[in-house]
Write a protein that binds this DNA or RNA. Structure first.
Length: 398
RNA sequence: GCUGAGGUGGCGGAGCGGUCAAUCGCAACAGACUGUAAAUCUGUCGCCCUUGUGGCUACGGGGGUUCGAAUCCCUCCCUCAGCACCA
């Protein structure tokens, strides 16, 4: 009994250090610390700008969960102060200043999402505004002494911009200092982040050293591509958020590039390696993907919702039937022009758009195409199903 | 402060007196195809009436020139880059 528990712990440590992990600094040290039974303080920085947590971001948070399961202390540092500076890792976006109230509101949203992965009762939340605000110029100057200009310029995205003679604002150099100082303030033993964060994470070590703290270890997780294989980015529309509705989440997963199925299984689900391999070997891509979509949906919405999402998807896209629960629109008249109907039911933004949809054959009524824009539709007592494209349905009744 | 560049549709970015509701790319939407909300191909992509060499509103704000302006002039607002020391 005792030995099996030990083996179990050993397995967890191995998984923690390897699955979805791109790099660990300093691996030997962290491994030892994990085995020692010491309770580690594990840091992750949270941007309070109100962004949604997507599956890529969730990779690091799921890592945190693994630490949590091993009894370590998860410390989330909310960048209330740093949000006003703008992280240079994230290109040149100068972010708008956030008010205290906005930060609070965003964090409430964020915590709701985090709660899907972490046990929030055990998490320590800290806002870096509490300490960064108080630093005076002398202290900042001293901190800055820990880095050379050349070091900063070595950094990839500064280097590129420098070579292209693009602006690099001095405040951007300050960002790693602040993030590093956070590690001092919360006495971090380990910090997590994506590969894009390497520089900032390393700064934490440098600054801890300056404050005569022992240096944090760094665990860098792999980056997850978006569903289309490109970099995950909201503007590419290839992002799956963990707060997405079950049906949505399932459907978006089904649009995943086949080549990414394994990686998503590996980084976004808890399935064991052997099991994933078995699924990949024994099933065609479509079914493997369906399983993946199911697993991920279940992870964030529960088994019941995942099952319903799966049924709904199969119903609509395989059998091409209307989904079971459709929003009902009550029409004011039992006879309406088709365009008026589409607009009234809020299925198009403007009459021009509705007209286009009809003319392009995108409008079905009771599964039959209706492409005449002047047609008058009689709405029977039992109602009718109005469908736009493949995915939008409404039941129309009088 | 000086010098220069620029502000155009959800975004990027053309156009620089009429043929501009505005090339193109991305995103979005529809159709075909498909295991798929993938890929690919086709079409659409300001609003309104309707289908016409149609109407209306649009190219940072305001004013002007002109038969006619996103395009020229004036003015205001905003953004960005370079310069600033070595006299």
């Amino acid at each position: 009994m005792k030995s099996s528990r030990k083996t179990n712990k050993e397995e967890k440590i191995n998984a923690l250090l390897s699955r979805g992990v791109a790099e660990v600094i300093d691996r030997g040290h962290l491994e030892e610390a994990l085995r020692s039974g010491k309770r580690l303080r594990v840091k992750l920085g949270i941007d309070p700008t109100g962004t949604k947590i997507h599956l890529g971001r969730a990779v690091a948070i799921r890592k945190l969960k693994e630490f949590q399961d091993l009894g370590h202390k998860v410390v989330l540092v909310i960048g209330g102060f740093t949000a006003q500076i703008g992280d240079p890792s994230d290109k040149l976006s100068k972010r708008p200043m956030l008010t205290e109230a906005q930060v609070r509101k965003n964090m409430a949203d964020y915590k709701r999402q985090l709660g899907k992965i972490l046990d929030l009762r055990k998490v320590e939340f800290r806002n870096n505004n509490d300490w960064l605000r108080k630093l005076n110029f002398k202290e900042i100057a001293n901190l800055a002494e820990s880095f050379s200009v050349l070091q900063m310029l070595e950094r990839r995205n500064f280097k590129d911009r420098f070579e292209r003679h693009e602006e690099i604002s001095l405040r951007e150099f300050l960002y790693p200092l602040m993030q590093g100082y956070d590690s001092v303030a919360i006495k971090a033993d380990v910090e997590l982040g994506g590969t894009d964060q390497l520089f900032n994470l390393m700064a934490g070590r440098t600054i801890q050293k300056y404050y005569r703290q022992k240096e944090q270890d760094i665990l860098i997780n792999e980056m997850l591509e978006g569903t289309d294989g490109r970099k995950m980015s909201t503007s590419w529309g290839n992002v799956i958020n963990i707060s997405d509705e079950p049906g949505d989440m399932y459907g978006k997963m089904m649009s995943l590039n086949d080549e990414l199925i394994y990686k998503y299984f590996w980084l976004c689900t808890d399935l064991k390696e052997e099991e994933i391999k078995k699924i990949m070997d024994s099933q065609n891509p479509r079914d493997a993907k369906a399983r993946l979509a199911f697993e991920i949906t279940a992870l964030y919405h529960g088994l019941g919702a995942a099952k319903a999402a799966e049924d709904g998807f199969n119903r609509v896209f395989r059998e091409k039937e209307a989904p079971e629960n459709i929003e009902v629109f009550r029409a004011v008249s039992s006879r309406m022009n088709i365009i008026d109907l589409v607009v009234a039911a809020n299925m198009a933004k403007s009459r021009s758009e509705a007209r286009r949809l009809v003319e392009q054959g995108g409008v079905d009524i009771n599964e039959k195409k209706h492409d005449n824009p002047v047609e008058e539709i009689d709405i029977p007592a039992e109602g009718l199903i109005l469908q736009i494209g493949k995915r939008k349905f409404k039941k129309i009744v009088v």
